[in-house]
Design a protein around this nucleic acid. Sequence first.
DNA 1: CTGAAAGCGCTAACAT
DNA 2: ATGTTAGCGCTTTCAG
Lengths: 337, 337
Amino acid sequence: MKITIKHIGEMAGVSAAAVSKALNGHSDISEETKTRILEICKQVGYTRNEIARNLAKGKSNMIGLLIPDISSPIYSEVFKGLDIQAREHGYCLFLCDTNRDIELEKKYVRTLMEKRVSGIIVAPVSNSVDHIEEITRNSIPIVYIGGKVNDNMGNYVTVDNFYGSKTAVDYLIKLGHREIYMVCDRDNTKTMADRIKGYETVMQENNCNPVVYVDGAGRKWRESGYFQTKHILSLGKIPSAIFCSSDMVAIGVMEAVLEKGLRVPEDISIVGYDDAAFASLPTINLTTIAQPKFEMGKKTFNLLYKIIKSHNSDYKNREIVKPELVIRGTCIQLKGN
Amino acid sequence: MKITIKHIGEMAGVSAAAVSKALNGHSDISEETKTRILEICKQVGYTRNEIARNLAKGKSNMIGLLIPDISSPIYSEVFKGLDIQAREHGYCLFLCDTNRDIELEKKYVRTLMEKRVSGIIVAPVSNSVDHIEEITRNSIPIVYIGGKVNDNMGNYVTVDNFYGSKTAVDYLIKLGHREIYMVCDRDNTKTMADRIKGYETVMQENNCNPVVYVDGAGRKWRESGYFQTKHILSLGKIPSAIFCSSDMVAIGVMEAVLEKGLRVPEDISIVGYDDAAFASLPTINLTTIAQPKFEMGKKTFNLLYKIIKSHNSDYKNREIVKPELVIRGTCIQLKGN
DNA sequence: CTGAAAGCGCTAACAT
DNA sequence: ATGTTAGCGCTTTCAG
């Protein structure tokens, strides 16, 4: 039998209400009784019941977080940024790993509603979020994040992929490269489209011929980079640089390049995208575009917080953050420049 | 104003109790009214209130999970194993990232108690867990996991580090190596002690001289592997193989070896420990000992579940799982064998 | 089969 | 400054 404020009240010779006030630091209670009550709580090891508390207050100070895969390093960093910010504002994050499964995503949204969370942050599994809004019916603030974000979603924070891509290719151009290919894995998101657009824009600005490979075989990540590059290298004409749609793709690209007996960066320069955890490992040392993951986490929480506080559940609070070039060892200055 | 079972009751012309029964699939209600009630719930978009429900039932079907750092790949895999198992048994995981901070760990334990979770799984930040047991006071089942586990903890599931280490060194011996060093970073856990013991045991069994470097400068991970190896290589005598206390250490070791102009595995074979996510990357391709992370997650939940169900909060339910050698490309068969 | 009533532990007016 | 009284929304005996 757990001990309640009523018990504490009896022990202290006061009412339960008084105990509640003491516990919550209300002002309408004398310092003296307050300390006495608190003392007793400590002594008997009282632990307040959040469940009852939340019911009485009609809220839960929890924020639901839907993530496609927490073992993906990018999301775990975002999580940490969110977490620290949430704690600072007295909220708890409730993490749900949707495992890239729409059904599970729906199930979790329902769970979160039942738990009466104050808001939801979701990195959606798919480009459309109709299935989740159908459940929430506008009854709770939602902020979207992640690679699937697009303008059909209401509130979101995302990163400027067009800008990131431009930065990467600009850098390559500055290094004297002109034959720069882009290789992408299969991913029909706005994120990907923007990255490609950024690449094409810079190429055209510099009168270079854009060559983008998008995986037609439906492969993803490293596998996609590997096989596409194998194909490219078999064609005879070798680009001086390859810009990859992600670091995982870059890994596959490097693999194929090395296998062919070519060197990185001496023969081919490579730029990735994401700044995944492994990108900084010595034997990889990949030059790449860094997503400000931790920052994004913070910004996202702050945006949600603002919406919650303003009770303005209405649409289109958006924030776009800028990524950054991280120069490591996979690019080389072209001779004669 | 949220809609409650009372409202539903009114609409259906029944009592709130009846609605509750329908919602929970109790048998003492006619099929007919039940379907009518459920129909209405669907139509008006009723979402049951878990908070009230939990209060009434006196429990929360949540399991607290304390992890030092969710961005560490090993923990995120464990999480996923736990998660899937928890879901299957109708529980929710409540993840708390303690950020390797004892104070935060304590704070979260308190939070979990307040939330009346059914049990706690903790990968502790430190070798001692007194600070957490002081808070829980045996009032809730706890299972410990992770690298800090030792016999001072009650219930735990861990992996057989002695065995894992033996397996690694046995493999090296079989490959014809006799001059095998072990390099460890700073980490005074039982885990580390067991790994060292396993190494020493096999070396002695084979009449080889064990040489273990433990970082005296207090460095960790890659940095530790790097500097210690640099030192080793400066000594003139080069071992034919290095067994590392972790994959991160192995990365540092490789870095130093490569920097010295030596090749892996032609000049020096390397074995890691953990099978971190990056170990399988093409340019790393590290032979290592794999922790059955996902499996461990499952086993851990099952153990906790057993304890919860048996109401036997008493001590020393333990499970030890066996790691496995993963052969990749950083070891070579010695000539003349 | 159905409903009335009590209560889970706490908070928040509203008295006193 | 303190206590009284109602709930919060649901579950659960216990009658009918």
